[in-house]
Write a protein that binds this DNA or RNA. Sequence first.
DNA 1: AATGAATGAGGCTTCATTCAT
DNA 2: TATGAATGAAGCCTCATTCAT
Lengths: 212, 212, 212, 212
Amino acid sequence: MPRPSRWSEILGAAGAEFRDRGYDNATLESIGARVGILKGSIYNYVGSKEELLLAVVEQPAKALLAELDRLRDDTGSSVAVRLRELIRMQVRIFSEYYPAAFVYLQQLGKLGRVQSPAFEEFREMDARYMEAVEALLAEGARTGEFSLASDPGTVARAVVGMLDWMQHWFTPRGAEADRELADELFALALGGLVAGGGMRGLSRSLPEAESP
Amino acid sequence: MPRPSRWSEILGAAGAEFRDRGYDNATLESIGARVGILKGSIYNYVGSKEELLLAVVEQPAKALLAELDRLRDDTGSSVAVRLRELIRMQVRIFSEYYPAAFVYLQQLGKLGRVQSPAFEEFREMDARYMEAVEALLAEGARTGEFSLASDPGTVARAVVGMLDWMQHWFTPRGAEADRELADELFALALGGLVAGGGMRGLSRSLPEAESP
Amino acid sequence: MPRPSRWSEILGAAGAEFRDRGYDNATLESIGARVGILKGSIYNYVGSKEELLLAVVEQPAKALLAELDRLRDDTGSSVAVRLRELIRMQVRIFSEYYPAAFVYLQQLGKLGRVQSPAFEEFREMDARYMEAVEALLAEGARTGEFSLASDPGTVARAVVGMLDWMQHWFTPRGAEADRELADELFALALGGLVAGGGMRGLSRSLPEAESP
Amino acid sequence: MPRPSRWSEILGAAGAEFRDRGYDNATLESIGARVGILKGSIYNYVGSKEELLLAVVEQPAKALLAELDRLRDDTGSSVAVRLRELIRMQVRIFSEYYPAAFVYLQQLGKLGRVQSPAFEEFREMDARYMEAVEALLAEGARTGEFSLASDPGTVARAVVGMLDWMQHWFTPRGAEADRELADELFALALGGLVAGGGMRGLSRSLPEAESP
DNA sequence: AATGAATGAGGCTTCATTCAT
DNA sequence: TATGAATGAAGCCTCATTCAT
């Protein structure tokens, strides 16, 4: 993956196009048009459309996995604090790597349907993510912090669904507002509809995780 | 839309194909092949691929909206009971109209991207659904049953995300098990991670909604 | 060519459809729809779309050839009177066999392009027609009644073009008006732009051909 | 509409194909085959088959309208001279832009049947042409040069029919012969069958229009 | 690095035609 | 006679991909 002048522009254009029309409906021609080059020229940068998708998604995916490692190594914080951190992290990555991160989530929906070798990467990343969430919830159940309504796997999928579905309604509104939204979602996850409002205050009083 | 012999087979094949490969990647040829007819023959039943999608999705969509009406008219039950009903209903429809209902949810993800006139129907149905959920949550907040972590709209989107994301991991396992899963999700929504397990018991003790 | 109950309706519908959309663009389905039957049912009456075209065109073509014979045998009238008769005849057939006669002319344009065996009939009929006109003009030149601006073949094609092109602007308006139009065209053919108006009076004073 | 190397070849091939088989029956595949490329490659030059038709017809149409403007501005010549010029012009364009000009006339026959937006252009061009001819005839009638056998509109349609029908029998035979043919048709139009031969001599003695 | 042009595969759609009922 | 359903052949158009320049 060379990084000549236009490379980042192409990445951005591809991300925007994938977000707007979906990977399948996006065409190399329209991506090229956004940058002012012809579709054929894109092959000076990538070997295929799928590779382009991977390249678009690479940055947010790496960032996500890096944060995941950080969280796993953060043994000093409570489970709740770490979950809050995870949710904040996901929202932050949504925002920071927008629209690339959205494209990533968009493609997640195809994991069960596509067997292309390139999708192996998606599958692995998603598996690592799900494991991390599930492990966190299981730990919370073990320590008594959480009282899960179902097995950790199912609860993990429900919580992740809430977060991943954001691709359909979320638009970045700035670090401040995004962080607030993340904390609201955390409060909802923690306390549900009945105590969610209460957890919201709690969320603020929770100690912050030790910064890396 | 005639309903001769092969029509239901075609509907089924289309539903399965759309689920497996996604609407965009599904081809009329492979749908026809599942039924043992040629792609052209499908046009004896529908006027276009999009019409076929609509036909596939029609049944679950109508069922969903009908249940929605039923819920709206159920003024005798508490908000929590009605929410439980809504979640049970969605899981039930998932199950009963599988895979058509999954295709419906699959397409929901494109609402922001596609402007085809056929998608207007999707948009309207989804809008009605979101309004119903939001109204239910708002009512719960008003009556004091709920304590929302954010504005009703945001909470509604989060809860619906949890439910709609099920398309990526849920597979029908029979009325009994599905109903149990629905109640677990309800408990999670109600009590969150902290009290979810407790709410699970509560869920069982809640009075059932008056049957229609 | 059987003549059961619906046969004439089908003929009429086909004629109208061919006129409105052209033979190539007309579909058996839309023809059937005009009569209230399905496209497949048409094959109870004809063996192919081309046969249907031929059947539509048969009546006006036969009528035209019959009148042509009559004209050829009319040795008692002057050339001009016979030409007037020919033009009146063509306009009358346009009118009477509308739209079938128009379809006939419409198809004439394809004579050079299509080699289908069915088109042989068209070719023969057209050849007979052209020969008749050309012979009439040649006779006029020989007798001194006409003074042709070019060889009889070319003049014949020019005159016939004027008549056949009518398919693009003519609509039947009743026997009276149609006959008047025919006489105006005759006057134009006879006297041209310079003396056409004068010939118009002449046309009225010409003796009528002996009726058959 | 780019004009690279193969573009003119494609235009020519399309023109020939349209002429030989008619627009509806011509296929992009056979057009491509004439040039030695695949049907899909044609879309590097035009966006649709209809656009290709328009491109084919553009040159003769523009030439025709340009000459029409020239004629309209030629106030120094008599009506007859200008009509002769018009007929010569049409034959010349037939010849020079063969077969594109023929395709143009071929499509004229569909004006009443097709409502495609592309055909609007045809309709406008044809309307301008008809108006020009009609105006010329009306002027001739007003000045006394002509004595029309019918209203100018009808006479115009008859004359134009004679000219447009040429597509079915005319083949270019060289500037000299074509010009002669044009003058014969002019003589026929002017003097009709009776005095056409006389007008033929007149035609030669008429002053030529002032060259532009 | 970019262009222009071409490929090739495939997809949706149309339609004349056939045939069992 | 008419229907319903299917066929098969084609046609238009799209697009990822390739390649010489």
